[in-house]
Design a protein around this nucleic acid. Structure first.
Length: 537
RNA sequence: GUCCCCAUCGUCUAGUGGUUAGGACACCGCCCUUUCACGGCGGCAACACGGGUUCGAUCCCCGUUGGGGAUGCCA
């Protein structure tokens, strides 16, 4: 038992129990303390949680944290709890709360306990659990683990400034109220000064834990300051509420962002002060921007709802997020459904180094997901986009064996094939099917349509279609192909010379589905009309 | 400043005390083709640096550098 691991401090000043217990073995095995999971009926099943604060949208970092917790719960048959940490009265908003829930639902991260669904450990909003925190604060007050601090923000700021001006380092709260004399206390009380409660932390020794992701982590108690556990406004701080709730809610694994690492030793001290055994901790690496700097709006979209607007499928977002810090390993296919990810997921495979967010790869994963969709699923995806533009099908076009709007749309999307790989570009890819007034790539028009040669060929083709095909009945794509090829032969030009201007004349773009299929679905009358309009332009 | 963490192609990553260091995105070339895309084939490209330990280090240890996080009566 290395002496360095044993904390020794004057009992008079530090009534707390210990820190970093004796041997450097995994503290999770220490039977000395009640563990949150011990009182669970089936303690083999992990209970994890995602505990966002409603102070903003659900951003990718939070979403990834939620995802990994969810994956762990789902892969282990455990419970996934959603808890809202709204102890900051200033910044918490209803809008954020709603946005976070929306983001979670969009991604398909369903929770077993939490807002809306309830559960045995509710309420799941910390602002509704104040009496619980109060009760535990009272215990710590009675045992002397916490003390009142009368310092105001101004007091603290002034002292910090003084230290810095003197060339020193301000390393957090200076312990000003830690050992107030009864007289001083009486004076402050007499002045009616507001106070907060701070945890009395050890001055020496080491606090450590075995991180699920990064193995052993340890902090010298010396660097830990007496942080506030209960604010003057009567609300607990995050540090306190998170500990109480995780224990009381039976959370077995606290999986959170790496930015919480430095909070962990302080929280372990709170567990110990309360006589509780801490849960297991796992700190996941941060997600950085493409430039390896902190991910921010200047990098582009950062909230999941922005990605939704960018046409990212929830399944693709989830897939990509899972790939940030985790990998299916080896040469396995990275494009996976959530159930496939659940099947393969393992905390042991979670990386310990930060990952840069790559928008290109997200887009790739997204297009792969779209390409793997069934025809019906594609139709479901396209319909709202079409409806949003008030595009309706002209009855004149409702031919070609399609006996319903859906059937026609289905065929239309079918012509796209793998070209349908983005929700964002879809409108311009299909707009010309619905209206003569569609998107036109001006440069493509100028190059392919607005030349004397192109005009001559388009008129010749229009004539040939009118002469060769019955304009009154639907024509199949191969009928158009035959006309084009024979016309090309007759004119002594390559088929491509007819095809390229026709494509732009019909679709307004140089890229589209196969031109013969386009003609079939646009119909002979409109095909001829657009060719003549283009030739006349 | 102080404390903590991280380090394999540009990016996400696999991997091992002895490998031609593998895959994916991006990029480049070729093929396919009515365009684009898809697809196929090929290419470019990495173990940050310096010391150890070892018969041998990308892998283990230390340091340096670089990056990130924390340093709140925010969470």
């Amino acid at each position: 038992m290395p002496d360095s691991l044993i904390r020794s401090s004057p009992a008079s000043r530090s009534p707390r129990t210990w820190t970093g217990q004796g041997p450097a073995t995994n503290p999770d095995d220490d039977p000395k303390f009640e563990r949150s999971s011990d009182f669970m009926s089936n303690s083999n099943q992990p209970r994890v949680r995602f505990a966002p604060s409603p102070t903003g949208f659900l951003h990718v970092g939070g979403a990834r944290t939620a995802l990994f917790n969810w994956l762990y719960a789902r892969s282990q048959g455990g419970a996934f709890v959603l808890r809202i940490e709204d102890t900051d009265q200033e910044r918490s908003t209803e809008e954020s709360y709603a946005a976070i829930l929306r983001g979670m639902e969009w991604l398909g991260l369903d929770w077993d306990e939490g807002p809306r669904v309830g559960g045995d450990f509710g309420p799941y909003l910390q602002s509704e659990r104040l009496d619980i925190y109060r009760e535990h604060l009272d215990k710590l007050a009675a045992s002397g683990h916490v003390y009142k601090c009368y310092c105001s923000a101004d007091d603290l700021e002034a002292r910090e400034k003084a230290v810095r001006d003197g060339g020193g380092n301000w390393e957090g709260y200076d312990g000003h109220c830690r050992d107030l004399t009864p007289a001083q206390t009486a004076e402050y009380e007499g002045q009616g000064k507001p106070f907060a409660w701070r945890l009395r932390t050890p001055d020496d020794g080491v606090t450590f834990w075995y991180d699920v992701i990064v193995d052993k982590r340890e902090f010298q108690n010396e660097v830990l300051v007496d942080r506030v556990v209960f604010k003057a406004d009567g609300f607990p701080t995050y540090q306190f509420a998170v500990v109480v709730d995780d224990h009381v809610m039976g959370i077995t694994h606290v999986l959170r962002g790496d930015d919480h690492v430095s909070n962990t030793p302080f929280q372990i001290l709170i567990y110990e002060a309360l006589g509780w055994k801490p849960p297991k901790f796992g700190h996941m690496p941060m997600i950085l921007g493409p430039d390896k700097k902190r991910l921010s709006k200047r990098h582009g979209a950062t909230s999941v709802e922005e990605f939704q607007k960018l046409g990212i499928l929830p399944a693709a977002m989830l897939n990509y997020l899972a790939l940030l810090g985790w990998s299916p390993g080896g040469n396995a296919d990275e494009v996976m459904t959530s159930s496939a990810i659940i099947k393969k997921f393992s905390l042991k495979k979670v990386n310990s180094s930060p990952a840069a967010f790559d928008y290109d790869k997200l887009n790739h994963i997204n297009s792969e997901h779209i390409k793997r969709l069934s025809a019906d699923e594609r139709l479901d995806l396209a319909k709202p986009i079409i409806a949003k533009r008030s595009w309706a099908l002209d009855p004149e076009w409702l031919i070609h064996g399609a006996d319903s709007t859906d059937a026609y749309l289905g065929r239309l999307l079918g012509t796209l094939g793998n070209r349908f790989s983005s929700l964002v570009t879809l409108p311009e890819q299909i707009g010309f099917f619905f209206s003569d007034d569609h998107y036109v790539d001006q440069e493509a028009w100028d190059e392919n349509v607005a030349t004397d040669e192109a005009r001559r060929l388009m008129i010749a083709l229009a004539d040939a279609i009118e002469e060769g095909l019955d304009m009154a009945v639907p024509q199949a794509s191969n009928a158009f192909e035959e006309v084009i090829r024979s016309t090309a032969e007759k004119l002594g030009v390559k088929a491509g010379q007819l095809i390229h201007p026709s494509r732009v004349a019909l679709t307004g773009q140089t890229r589209s589905a196969g031109i013969f299929e386009v003609m079939e679905l646009v119909g002979a009358p409109r095909t001829v009309r657009r060719l003549r309009v283009a030739a006349a332009s």
